[in-house]
Amino acid sequence: MPTPDEARSPASRVRRFWDSSVGKKVVMAVTGIIGIGFVLGHMAGNLQMFKGAGAAQAMHDYAVLLRSTGGLLYVMRGILVGAIVLHVTAALQLTARNRAARPVPYAKRTPQVSTLASRTMRYGGVLLMAFIVFHIADMTLGIGVPGFRHLDPYNNLRNGFTRWWAVLFYVLAMLSLGFHLFHGAWASLRTLGARRPSAAPLHRNMAVAIAVVTAAGLVAVPIAAVLGLFRDDMPVSEAMSTARAGAPGITPAGAAAIGTASAAASVPRA
C-alpha cells in the first residue's frame, strides 16, 4: 500500500511536475492555450479569403510576409510542434491513468452535469490529430491538391475544396475543434488556477465565444468554397507582393501578431 513517504521522490523538480497528474494537466492547458492562440491567428489569416478582389494577392502577400521573418518562423514552428507533442503525450498518458483508475465500470452511469464536449475530448483529440496530419500533407505539402502552387494559398484552397470529401473532413474537424475548445478554453484557465472563484463555476461564456468564433471562422472558408464564393482572382504577382508586403493594412487588424504563429504550422501557404 502506498505510504506518504514514497511521495517524496528523489527525481528533479521538472520530472516530478511532469509525473504528477496536476503537472501533466497544466502542460496540457498551456499547450492548449498556445494552440488556441495559433488557431485564432490562423483563422484571421484565412479570413482574408473574403477580401473580394485582391484576395489572392493578399493571401499570397501574407504568406510571403510570414516567410520574411527569418528564423522566427522556425522558432514558432518548433514551439507548435513541441506543444502538439506535449499535448498529445500528456493526453495519452492521462487517459491511460484515468482508465486505470476505474478498472470495473459501472453497470449504469448517468452523467449529471458534464458536457458531451468534456466527455469526448479524447475522441475529438484523435480526430484533430488525424486532421493535423492530413492538413499539413494537403495544404502545406500539396499532396493530392489539384493544381497546387507554392505561395498561392488562395487558389490552393479554392482547388482543394473542390473535393467533397476534403470539405467534409475539414468541416467535421473544425466542428470538433469547436467542441474541443468549448471545454478546453474554459477548463484551461481553471487548470492553471487562473480563475477567480465564481458562484456558478460551470458557466463558460468566454469559452463559448472562443469555440463558436474559431469553429465558425474556420468552417467559413470551405463552405464558401463550396458555394462558389471564391472566384478566379487575379493571378498573383510576385513584384507587387514585395512592394506591398511591408505596407500596413494588408493583414487584417489584430492578426499580425498571431499571424506569425499561424504560419508556423505552415498549414495553408508555404
Binding site: P2, P4, E6, A7, R8, S9, R16, D19, S20, S21, V22, K24, K25, L94, R97, N98, R99, A100, A101, R102, P111, Q112, V113, S114, S118, R119, M121, H183, W186, A187, R190, T191, P201, L202
Partner: peptide
Amino acid sequence: LRMVAQMDLETFGGCTLFGECQAA
C-alpha cells in the same frame, strides 16, 4: 505538493474538470 503526490500514488485518476464531482 505532498497531497497531490499521494493522490497520484493511490491510483486515482486526474481531473478533466467534468464537474461531475461537484454535482455529486
